[in-house]
Amino acid sequence: MFAMMESARLEALHLAHDPATGLKAIIAIHNTRLGPALGGCRYLAYPDDESAVRDAIRLAQGMSYKAALAGLEQGGGKAVIIRPPHVDNRGALFEAFGRMIESLKGRYITAVDSGTSSADMDCIAQQTQHVTSTTAAGDPSPHTAMGIYSGIRASALARLGSDDLDGLRVAIQGLGNVGFALAEQLSAAGALLYVSDLDPGRVQLAVEQLGAHPVSGEELLATPCDILAPCGLGGVLNAQTVGELRCAAVAGAANNQLASAEVADELEGRGILYAPDYVINSGGLIYVALKHRGEELPAITAHLARIGRRLTEIYAHAQADKRSPARVADDLAERLLYGA
């Protein structure tokens, strides 16, 4: 466990067990140099405790990088609740987790993530103020999509010479809350959409409402397009799939798109521009962080516009250094976090 912490440069790892509710929770605090750690809470089944700890540490590190490059006064953290086979009272379990957060005295702020909902955050809020993504705070998904849209325009300008999306071919993998909202914005700008999702109903909705072209999940990565937007599961870009890509740039909402750091170099070698995922998908974090601080919507929207400008900066450095934008982004984030 300590080896994992040292490798990720993690500040702290907190564990809690509440037999009365079935709570088994892990909070990983990666870096608080820029402010209190902020990151979502996952509620998932894991094959073993080590897998849950590893997930929390990996995701907390990513949140530090994301917050730093988003220009937020926040550190990075992540929580994992190991979902039990059966729970008698879900509300009581999340209230117990709220008490765990409160015991950290503001060092960690939680939010919605895989397996959790605004209703769960409402339960946590009964025990602590260090929570966002509540029902009152609103859904961050549209704001994540706004940031992705801004990042796609910046990527199109850098790779294709224009940020005019009219007629641009965009392949979207995953039509969840963020993916579908992104598809709506791209369609309004005149982009031609190719879409896939595990839920055929979501695909049909995009076809009927947005004039999208349906593509099977197996074929989407190899679909000829200008921009590939992974908006589903992570790890979609690996040594095998990179060779199948027929796009000019990859710019999407999914977390941890690269199976390994070396995949970024393979993309660079193929001349495919890569928008670092934790930069382009930071809109949701920006929304929940600023909302938690009491900022109004115009200020939040103005901050979202910085995503495109940050990507443009990263692309310029990458071109000058002949390196992958992913490597450049990591270096920039580490300078902010560690003064390196």
Rank of each mutant, 00 (worst) to 15 (best):
Q74P: 02
L59V: 08
A92K: 08
S103Q: 06
Y149P: 08
L157I: 00
A171T: 15
K105I: 01
A154H: 04
G167N: 03
S64Q: 02
R58L: 08
S150E: 14
S141H: 08
A125D: 08
V80A: 12
A96N: 13
Q173S: 14
A158L: 06
L157P: 02
Q173W: 12
F97R: 09
I57W: 05
G138M: 08
D164M: 10
A111N: 07
L72P: 04
Q126A: 15
S114F: 13
G91F: 01
L160P: 01
M121I: 11
I57R: 08
D122E: 11
S141T: 08
S117I: 03
G62T: 04
V178R: 04
D122P: 09
E95C: 09
A158T: 03
T132D: 04
H143F: 10
T110P: 02
P142Q: 13
P84R: 14
Y46L: 14
P84S: 08
G138N: 10
M146L: 14
A56S: 09
G147N: 07
A56I: 00
S103V: 05
I82Q: 10
R153T: 10
N89H: 15
P140H: 03
H143G: 00
D166P: 03
I81G: 05
G98I: 05
P85R: 14
E102M: 06
S103L: 03
D164G: 01
G75C: 11
H130G: 04
S118G: 11
Q74W: 02
M100F: 15
G151F: 05
S117N: 07
T116H: 04
V53G: 01
D139Y: 06
G106I: 09
M121E: 11
L157E: 14
A119L: 06
P84I: 04
G179W: 02
G176P: 08
E50L: 11
L175N: 10
Q129N: 13
F94Y: 12
V53Q: 13
G115M: 10
V112M: 09
S141L: 09
E73K: 02
K78H: 04
L69G: 01
V170C: 12
R107T: 03
A136G: 04
G77D: 10
L104H: 09
R83Y: 10
A67Q: 00
S162Q: 00
A79R: 10
F97N: 13
S133M: 09
G147V: 01
T134W: 04
P47C: 10
D113A: 04
E102H: 07
S155H: 01
V131S: 12
D48P: 11
T144C: 09
A56T: 00
A70M: 03
S51A: 15
D88H: 04
D55M: 01
I101V: 14
M63F: 00
A96H: 06
I101Q: 07
T116Y: 04
C123G: 06
A96C: 13
A119R: 15
G151S: 07
R99E: 15
D166W: 12
I152Q: 05
Y46C: 13
F94K: 14
A111Q: 08
I57V: 13
Q74G: 03
F94W: 12
V112H: 11
Q127M: 15
R107V: 00
V112I: 14
I148N: 06
V112N: 11
P85H: 13
L93S: 12
H130Y: 14
S141Y: 02
K78F: 01
